[in-house]
Nucleic acid binder design. Structure first.
Lengths: 195, 195
DNA sequence: GGACGATCTTAATCTAGATTAAGTCCCTTC
DNA sequence: GAAGGGACTTAATCTAGATTAAGATCGTCC
């Protein structure tokens, strides 16, 4: 039995849905279980889904010309993720999205997303607020990359996502921070010696 | 006489408004003219407006602990800008927004924005799409900063915003790219010698 | 239980880009 | 028209972080 509590809670924090609207929402969602390591969207292909993480954790990354994986973001429980550009404009994605641990997701296809928004216009507000908040977070991250040292960024990361470090391999945290695993290792030692 | 053609065109590219809705929109806007150098939102204060650039160019920057200005973005004609976080959550902004040339803007206060969205729910869709597209652009920028060299980022910048270089001082382009003016100067010479 | 592979660490060396400092070229403005 | 100031360049030196390479640690799979 699929448990929709968490997605409903996330949405109803911002808007109020009646029973009909709620049913329309839930019936547009496809539920899927992923094993750790499973890939749900692949670079070079069109992104098929906008993804809500019900449980677990996904990572979205860009593979650069040297084959190095550059993490754009992690998505833990109750986060949305996916390549909105590829998803909505039907072009090839440059991002891959992979499960870091066993993960349960809800999927919206693009036609599903569009028809859902037509059926339940209130959701426009929900997604407007969602994107607005994500935009703020991305802006902050750009500012951080340009203004802070790797050490400062790492400390900020730990404070902002304290749970992530417990199960995300350090090399992906390094990638998210924009440094090599070797350098993150050095930073960690420096910090632990200081403390 | 204020000219609303450009903001209406930007919005009606995504949604269709009737006369009543259009009137509600336009009456929520405050129009203002800025001289080059004028500051319209100041770091340390609450951001009062969400800003549409009708003509001219604004720059939003973060001042780091060493007093260095780090440019988050430029906004040219038909772009929206402003610190959405401070604007909507009533906290102090860490960004300053300044006119780079003489500029005409339309301003929305937060109460104005909220009541406009209640009066004209269609605009939820417009802003949802606007934020969705901005989010994609910010994601791309994060990926770029982490994956490309300063030279590659500069070339990408020139291709994406070919007009900007004509009137934006190079030191701000350097800041946007996350390098020092001295280094951008070096990069430019390297490129011109190659060509 | 040993061999393999993946993650992480350490350390030496290297480099993209920062810092510092001086100089050039223009605008203002008095 | 001299004096000052801002934008940009050049060049020398310095450093945060990359690269390379070698271990250490720890599954896990046969």
């Amino acid at each position: 039995m699929v448990d929709f509590k968490s997605i409903l809670a996330a949405i109803e924090k911002h808007i109020t849905l009646d029973d009909v609207e709620r049913a329309a929402l839930l019936s547009s969602l496809e539920s899927r279980s992923l094993k750790a390591g499973d890939i749900i969207a692949r670079s070079g292909e069109q992104a098929q889904h906008f993804i809500f993480v019900n449980m677990g954790c996904l990572m979205t990354y860009f593979t650069d010309s040297n084959g190095v994986e550059r993490v754009l973001q992690f998505a833990t429980a109750s986060w949305w993720t996916g390549d909105l550009d590829s998803f909505s404009k039907h072009n090839k994605s440059c991002y891959t999205t992979r499960a870091l641990v066993d993960t349960e997701v809800f999927l919206l296809t693009y036609p599903g997303f569009e028809s859902l928004l037509e059926k339940v216009p209130k959701l426009e507000k929900y997604f407007r607020v969602l994107f607005q908040n994500s935009l703020v977070a991305h802006g902050r991250r750009i500012t951080e990359i340009n203004s802070y040292s790797a050490e400062e960024r790492y400390e900020a990361f730990r404070q902002r996502y304290p749970t992530l470090e417990q199960f995300v391999p350090q090399k992906y945290i390094a990638s998210y921070l924009g440094v090599t695993p070797e350098f993150l290792s050095k930073v960690r030692r420096r910090i632990s010696h200081k403390a």
